[in-house]
Simulated scan of single mutants.
Amino acid sequence: MSRIFSRFLDGAVCAFEPVADGPLEPVAIFHAGVEEVCAHSVAPDLKRAVYATRHAVVCVGRDAGEQWRYELRPRSGERYGHRPACAFSLDGAEVWVYRPDAMAGRGPTDRWVVLDAGSGEVRGEAALETAGHGGEHFRHISGTCVLLDVGEGQDGTVIYRGALTGEGLELHRYPWGDRCLIDFAPDGARFMTVNHDQGDVAFHDFPGGGVLLRLPLDAFGHDADDASVEWSGGYLEADTVIVTVGGETEDGEDWHRHYRVDPSDGNVLGPFDAGSQHAYDVEPLGDGSWLVSDGAGRPVRTRARR
């Protein structure tokens, strides 16, 4: 499985590979030519990157040359409330694109499109039953499917599973509209969600989605009047997940705490000091290490001491 990930820094899509501890240096840099992007991804062979703006998905090479462009037509006249998403498949052969067409004024619902990574040609697409503001792709370790979490604001969150077949994009919608996808287990056999109202965390089997375990907020010693489960965290290792709880002090200051949890039985193993700047500044990597950001937004890898 490719461990390449990207950050958008100083007008460029920067590729990183977490092979060392401490501050990470880019292994490839792709200049985008724009100051802001909605999403970005790098191919596992480091030969190309894609980024999404509100109007297009663009593929660029390491020489900053544009290789292809997929226009989100018709061009939207809405300035806010719609953020497209893009991600390479695990093998780098396709680019998955979430189109928030409803909020962009392009149609009654959103669309999910799969492009050929080499040419930008459409290989499959499907209409969704959502009117989302944005989405996030989660690639399964098998490489055979991708999950998409579509955020519909106060209306909740919808999770889809998609697979590219000879017939096009095969679509499955999970039977909830109130759970936010957080992370896959390292072996891909489970996944973690947080309730949209931030009242609990749950663990599901894959691909079915059956709930194996659910932990309410009070399992962490917090009350719903002053705290909530954040849409953050994930699998630190196969047998340990990080769950984030946050809130606001009487003085209006944000606070957050991370907790280690055994996902097999729900045992809260204790607090976890990730060294994070805020509730969403932690990305467990599944191998006992995790990422946070330095003051400039650059990734720093840390490993728990044994």
Rank of each mutant, 00 (worst) to 15 (best):
I4M: 06
I4K: 08
I4H: 14
S6N: 11
V13A: 01
D21Q: 14
C38G: 07
H40D: 12
V42N: 06
H55R: 06
V60M: 06
Q67K: 14
L72Q: 07
R73N: 11
G81K: 07
G81F: 11
G81E: 12
R83I: 00
G92R: 02
A93T: 12
V97W: 02
D101M: 09
T109P: 08
R111A: 12
V114H: 09
L115F: 03
S119G: 15
G120P: 11
A126N: 09
A127L: 10
E136Q: 13
E136L: 08
F138G: 05
L148E: 03
G153A: 02
G153W: 01
T157L: 00
V158E: 14
G162F: 15
G166N: 03
L169P: 11
L171D: 10
H172P: 02
R173N: 04
P175R: 00
R179K: 12
G188R: 02
F191M: 09
T193W: 09
N195K: 09
H196P: 05
D197F: 08
Q198A: 12
V201D: 03
G208W: 07
L212F: 06
D218S: 13
D223T: 11
D226K: 12
E230A: 10
W231K: 13
Y235N: 01
I242A: 04
G247R: 07
D254V: 00
V261A: 01
F272G: 03
A274C: 06
G286Y: 10
G286T: 07
S293D: 15
D294I: 02
T302E: 08
